[in-house]
């Protein structure tokens, strides 16, 4: 039972960071390998506001989200738009995007190392035990989970029930057709990339409430987000959320039943099995 609850709590934050990558890859077609670094940047942001100004992480997120939106918009506009213009096909853009963002991840790691140094960071916030079914869980984990859930629901409602959310999905499904209904495809892609980055950064800020992190931990989260997005199916918002919970559960189960060092290996095993059985993801549509 504690595995179930623990996995669920972890899955909530995973869902948020993976939704960020899903928006960037699904709509803007950028497989952002610097996604994990954006997450760590969000974590550092929360840490910095907390240790420097005693600002509560939930308040810090209010500042981190718009900041991350602007930074990611600038990254898309200045670094990635030339690739988008040059690319003759979506496939070529994907390859170019992977290479460019892979390089960018090193730059971001370097920047964070230079600013914060190489040691591990953590801070204690809401470090009280809360008993769920007679098992203790950190209040910070539960608070982060609840906040992630609220963000995820807001994102899903926005994407499925508003005109602008529908426009984003239209670009994801068929950019040519989107142009034919007067959607500004380039601008919509930039906005999707920026929102994706902001969502990932907010996930990082929430994770930092209960996780010890350092400047170079981003790549692990990039891998996890990648696994979740592929697992859930590209463009499948609900699939992403479900896959995130699945990964959270699998990791928690392996960590407590087998060995904590094997969590990433377990994630990959799950990933490979799903790819072999359902290559388009658990919820991917077959067309």
């Amino acid at each position: 039972m504690d595995i179930l609850i623990g996995g669920f709590l972890l899955g909530g934050t995973y869902a948020l960071m993976a939704l960020g990558l899903q928006l960037q890859y699904g709509v803007a077609r950028i497989m952002n390998l610097a996604n994990g670094e954006m997450l760590v940047a969000g974590a550092f942001g929360a840490f910095w506001f907390y240790s420097g100004f005693q600002m509560r992480p939930f308040l810090a997120i209010v500042l981190i989200v718009p900041l991350a939106f602007v930074v990611n918009w600038a990254i898309y506009h200045y670094l990635l738009t030339p690739l988008v213009r040059r690319a003759k096909s979506r496939g070529q853009l994907e390859v170019d995007g992977i290479l460019a963002t892979f390089g960018m991840s090193f730059i971001l790691v370097g920047l964070m190392l230079a600013v914060f140094g190489g040691e591990y960071f953590s801070y204690s916030y809401l470090e009280r035990a809360v008993f769920v079914l007679e098992q203790p869980y950190g209040l910070n984990r539960i608070a982060a989970f609840c906040a992630s859930l609220v963000f995820c629901i807001a994102l899903v409602v926005w994407l499925s029930h508003t005109r602008s959310g529908l426009a984003l999905r239209a670009v994801a499904v068929n950019p040519t057709a989107a142009g034919l209904v007067a959607i500004k495809v380039a601008r919509t892609s930039a906005i999707a990339f920026a929102i994706g980055g902001a969502v990932t950064a907010s996930g990082g800020a929430l994770l930092s409430m209960f996780l010890t992190f350092d400047a170079s931990i981003g790549v692990i989260f990039t891998l996890k987000a990648l696994i979740i997005v592929i697992l859930g199916g590209v463009g499948e918002i609900r699939g992403t959320v479900a896959a995130a919970f699945l990964l959270g559960l699998a990791e928690t189960a392996v960590a407590s039943l087998v060995d904590p060092g094997l969590t990433l290996a377990a994630a990959y095993l799950l990933f490979i099995v799903v790819l072999l059985v359902r290559p388009r993801g658990l919820f991917g549509s077959r067309s």
């Binding site: 426009a167 239209a170 499904v173 068929n174 989107a178 034919l180 209904v181 007067a182």
Partner: peptide
Amino acid sequence: AIFAELTVQENLKLGAYPK
């Protein structure tokens, strides 16, 4: 050039996207 993964309703709604 339809939005194959979206519903009929969503396709028609997107048709009315232009100002």
